[in-house]
Design a protein around this nucleic acid. Structure first.
Lengths: 265, 265
DNA sequence: CCAGCCCAATATGTGCACATTCATTCGGTG
DNA sequence: CACCGAATGAATGTGCACATATTGGGCTGG
């Protein structure tokens, strides 16, 4: 028999329930993209990623396929998996879809305001106001993104939630790519509060208009692009987000650091 | 060496480009669901499906994972993959999302009617009218479904196209499950034509209203449910849709025919 | 007779090794 | 000197075999 036996030897901290490992790999790559760590056009090679993350190639392969299916990556058969290049046109498409979807959600919530979780909405708005007052940029950034998702959740419609989630994550990618530095306070300070008020008052028309204006403002802000890529190597990117065993890598100095095969546009 | 060599022996009609095989498996299962062949709650076991389709288990596995990710199937880790049970609530959620999305698309098209492919829209409407006149039910059914997708395509927005595609396929599942027999002529005869006319005339308000009424009519029609399942076995379902080699199966009389492991609700 | 436990059979999950395909490079020729 | 073709290398795709978890049935004790 070959030198297999696999776990009989050692290194098996958890013996069951490895489903979270797949999620960890998936999230690691996704977070790296949201952070802007991966330059556009980079070829994500399975063996390299596997070494960087300290997991087997099949796990990486599965995560890559999943990400490609969700349009996060461009996968070409027998060629490789590439980080897509977000275009201004895609940004406008995303925001056009967001306008349709979120204005519709706002209208629905305002119409059926008696059935929504008012407390949760008020609580979120209060959190945002507090974050604005204390000037907590990081928290406000996260809360601002969650506000839009919260409205979808309040609708109670799984279809709407799923669609808007995809749109918002893609939108976040554009956010991190195009306007990473000079985000003043993520659009107007109290636009979210005004939208929430209109919804709670049942003012359908005003809620729709406020939401539309809010999205137009975001779209305009993101139309100016300034991009910086501080990419070095996949090992560096996933150094802190190691998924595999304790040891981060078995051959860090494998000469792969400086040069990375990506088609710089 | 083992009896491998795989293709050296024989049975390898195509030596390259097996990417279509995955699509074939994926479509086979999806079509079986759309046809209403698979009863709700059925456990789709990988080895059984692999034998029924005449392909390897890994291919089936990949297709199953993809379908599960698209919400077509419910996959429970270490348990199996199950055919979901469509609920009336899900139907209402789907149509609520369709109302928001498709009304928005109709408004957009009517607003920017100068930039859309007018010829293509007119051609489709003409095809539908012809199908109605000749009473070609099958063709009309397909054209009716394609009409809604065509409007998304005319918008030229990939985001909208993707979202609506998911919604329409799910909607088709409800269609085949709930109202398979007595579909008169797929809602009003010329509702699609009226919508197209309103769009081409640039009458935004009227296009939106007609689309909304159309969807409400569909939703109402699908709310009455009558379901029949003529399910026998996976081998029978995928007998004609064989994907693998020429021989449909290597052990058809494997006693597995009559009994099928599915939890009849 | 029923309930709880143990065991075997089966299905799923995963690592591994091989086949295949694509890109790059080197050598030859016009 | 430039261009074309074949060989080589690596990366992707896939089948296979093993490890693991769950389910069902049978057995034994109360």
């Amino acid at each position: 028999m070959p030198p297999s036996k696999t776990k009989g030897a050692a290194t098996k901290p958890r013996k069951k329930g490895d489903v979270d490992t797949d999620e960890a790999i998936y999230n690691a790559i996704r977070q790296a993209m949201l952070m802007g760590k991966l330059p556009a056009g980079l070829n994500l090679q399975e063996p390299t990623l596997a070494r960087a993350l300290g997991v087997s190639r099949e796990r990486v392969r599965k995560a890559l396929h999943r990400l490609a299916h969700e349009r996060w990556l461009d996968m070409i058969p027998n060629r490789g998996t590439f980080v897509p290049t977000p275009t201004i046109e895609e940004l406008h498409n995303i925001y056009e879809a967001r306008k349709i979807l979120e204005v519709g959600i706002a209208r629905k919530l305002a119409t059926r305001r008696a059935f929504i979780d008012t407390e949760r909405l008020n609580q979120h708005v209060a959190s945002e106001k507090k974050a604005i007052k204390t000037d907590d940029r990081g928290r406000l950034f996260r809360l601002s993104a969650e506000f839009h998702f919260l409205l979808a959740e309040l609708s109670g419609n799984d279809q709407l939630i799923d669609m808007l989630r995809g749109l918002l994550t893609r939108s976040s990618l554009h956010f991190s790519l195009f306007a990473p530095k000079r985000l003043h306070n993520c659009a107007g300070p109290h636009e979210h509060e005004d939208i929430a008020d209109a919804i709670l008052e049942g003012d359908t028309t005003r809620a729709a208009k406020l939401m539309l204006d809010h999205l137009v403002g975001l779209e305009t802000m993101l139309s100016v692009r300034d991009r910086v890529d501080n990419f070095t190597s996949l090992e560096d990117v996933f150094r802190c987000t190691a998924v595999g065993r304790g040891r981060t890598s078995l051959a860090t100095g494998k000469k792969q650091g400086g040069r990375s095969d990506g088609k710089k546009s």
